[in-house]
């Protein structure tokens, strides 16, 4: 049983750091486009598109209720009655490619760029 910290453990930490950097590069947000609007997905289905230029809010009712608010060019989930409230704690976002997620409700709010041409296709 190896209970003392060993040199190999640094390699384990390094491995995780490398993996984190690789994933971050793969999902690099806002590479080329300015943020234009947000897409709201509920259970994987696009239910609403909102421009970031004008303030407004939208309510999604599913297993739980989320209120999505666009204000001053950024979007946030301002109210949720889900138990964890992670989505509300996630704050507001405005960079292309970033997203807000409420897992209990199956909700995803995604910031999209001006032209909607395809960056890459997965799977």
């Amino acid at each position: 049983m190896r209970l003392q910290f060993q040199k190999g453990d640094y390699a384990a930490i390094g491995l995780v750091v490398l993996l984190a950097i690789a994933v971050a590069l793969a999902f690099l947000p806002g590479r080329m486009k300015d943020a234009a609007g947000v897409e709201i997905y509920h259970d994987g289905v696009l239910v609403k598109t909102m421009p970031l230029s004008s303030d407004g809010s939208y309510t999604v009712v599913g297993d739980y209720t989320n209120v999505i608010t666009v204000s001053g060019g950024s979007v946030s989930i301002t109210h949720s009655d889900c138990p964890g409230m992670d989505c509300v704690h996630s704050g507001s976002i405005s960079a292309v490619g970033r997203s807000l997620v409420c897992l209990p409700n199956g909700l995803e709010v995604r910031v999209i760029g001006q032209s909607d041409d395809v960056d890459f296709v997965v799977g």
Partner: peptide, 20 residues
């Protein structure tokens, strides 16, 4: 799989840093 979206993967790098 549950969200039917690959964009959730963007969270992984944050989660990996925290997991250290």
């Amino acid at each position: 799989v549950l969200m039917n979206s690959v964009y959730v993967g963007a969270y992984l790098s944050y989660l990996l840093c925290v997991s250290i």
